[in-house]
Amino acid sequence: MKRVAIVHHSAHGHTEHIARQIRAGCDEVNGVVATLLRAEELAANPAPLSDFDGIVLGSPTYLGGVSGPFKCFMDATGGMWRRQSLKGKLAAGFTVSSLPAGDKQSTLLSLFVFSMQHGMLWIGNPILPEQHLGVPYDEAANRLGSWSGLMAQADHASPADAFAPGDAKTARLFGQNFAHALLRLSAERRSLTAVADSAEVSE
């Protein structure tokens, strides 16, 4: 069973709502189980992240970047960086803002650079915008057209009512894609290990 950590900060519940949709998508894939982890709790001890095979990072976009609590979590992983504890793990990112743009790309870039510094393998968002296929805009997957990661827009309402249906759909598909990619990566690594072991025996 491959394990996915969905690390997020959510001040008002909106980012957590999307995190839960991503978890649901991951859990729909056999062989993968996802766990929600709060960034502010991991800031005190991020070491448990080394037990996961894949890590999805999520923060609201505040003033063009990650939130303060999420940045504290990122900074707390310095020791893990020195030990290369996260090297080779699959990573992805998502963010939420109250505006369609909101400079969310800056937040995703911050999550990407963080993952690269840890030696993780970044996977983007391959979902085609469904509005081009005739699906109504609010119901369309990847309606905001983000490729480097998942973007969602939250209105000023309770988390359950704040999102267009398309954003929730995108999050579930994003989780499914991440889980499938993690399984493919794991299978390829097993295959390479088997080839290497066979070569050693032949020698």
Score class of each variant (00 low, 15 high):
residue 83 R to T: 10
residue 78 G to Y: 02
residue 142 N to V: 12
residue 73 F to W: 12
residue 171 A to S: 07
residue 147 W to M: 14
residue 50 S to K: 14
residue 8 H to N: 10
residue 202 S to G: 00
residue 61 T to N: 12
residue 112 F to V: 11
residue 136 P to I: 11
residue 22 I to P: 00
residue 182 L to R: 08
residue 7 V to R: 03
residue 89 K to F: 08
residue 179 A to N: 03
residue 10 S to F: 06
residue 109 L to R: 14
residue 14 H to P: 04
residue 123 I to L: 14
residue 106 S to G: 15
residue 118 H to M: 10
residue 177 N to K: 10
residue 38 R to C: 11
residue 189 R to V: 11
residue 93 G to L: 01
residue 57 L to D: 10
residue 29 V to E: 02
residue 195 V to D: 06
residue 128 L to C: 13
residue 68 G to R: 07
residue 18 I to S: 06
residue 162 A to Y: 01
residue 197 D to I: 00
residue 90 L to T: 14
residue 186 S to C: 12
residue 89 K to C: 11
residue 149 G to L: 14
residue 64 G to S: 06
residue 168 A to L: 13
residue 42 L to Y: 12
residue 139 E to K: 14
residue 16 E to N: 05
residue 131 Q to F: 15
residue 93 G to A: 15
residue 188 E to N: 07
residue 150 L to W: 05
residue 172 R to I: 11
residue 60 P to Y: 12
residue 79 G to A: 05
residue 130 E to A: 15
residue 73 F to G: 00
residue 84 Q to R: 12
residue 14 H to Y: 03
residue 173 L to G: 01
residue 15 T to V: 09
residue 82 R to F: 07
residue 99 L to T: 13
residue 176 Q to I: 07
residue 4 V to T: 06
residue 177 N to S: 08
residue 128 L to R: 15
residue 128 L to D: 15
residue 19 A to Y: 01
residue 41 E to T: 10
residue 65 G to M: 05
residue 162 A to H: 01
residue 141 A to F: 03
residue 187 A to E: 14
residue 36 L to G: 09
residue 94 F to P: 13
residue 107 T to R: 11
residue 123 I to C: 13
residue 125 N to F: 13
residue 91 A to G: 08
residue 177 N to D: 06
residue 88 G to I: 05
residue 185 L to Q: 14
residue 156 H to P: 00
residue 81 W to Q: 07
residue 36 L to K: 02
residue 96 V to R: 04
residue 160 A to T: 08
residue 91 A to F: 13
residue 28 E to M: 09
residue 96 V to G: 11
residue 57 L to M: 14
residue 161 D to M: 05
residue 34 A to W: 05
residue 193 T to V: 02
residue 71 K to E: 05
residue 189 R to K: 14
residue 46 P to N: 10
residue 62 Y to C: 05
residue 63 L to N: 12
residue 158 S to F: 01
residue 35 T to N: 14
residue 154 A to Q: 04
residue 66 V to W: 04
residue 127 I to V: 15
residue 148 S to M: 15
residue 181 A to P: 07
residue 188 E to W: 08
residue 201 V to N: 02
residue 94 F to E: 10
residue 199 A to M: 05
residue 178 F to N: 00
residue 117 Q to L: 06
residue 143 R to Y: 05
residue 77 T to H: 01
residue 158 S to D: 09
residue 9 H to E: 07
residue 71 K to Q: 06
residue 124 G to E: 14
residue 44 A to W: 02
residue 124 G to A: 12
residue 87 K to Y: 04
residue 18 I to W: 02
residue 55 I to L: 14
residue 183 L to K: 05
residue 174 F to A: 07
residue 35 T to K: 13
residue 65 G to K: 06
residue 45 N to T: 09
residue 126 P to Y: 08
residue 26 C to F: 03
residue 106 S to C: 13
residue 95 T to L: 12
residue 74 M to K: 00
residue 71 K to I: 01
residue 26 C to V: 07
residue 115 S to T: 06
residue 167 D to Q: 08
residue 55 I to F: 07
residue 56 V to Y: 00
residue 44 A to N: 10
residue 41 E to D: 13
residue 117 Q to R: 09
residue 159 P to D: 09
residue 119 G to K: 10
residue 16 E to T: 10
residue 27 D to I: 02
residue 142 N to D: 14
residue 21 Q to F: 02
residue 127 I to P: 03
residue 171 A to M: 04
residue 192 L to G: 00
residue 12 H to L: 10
residue 197 D to M: 03
residue 67 S to V: 05
residue 12 H to D: 06
residue 19 A to T: 03
residue 169 K to N: 08
residue 149 G to T: 15
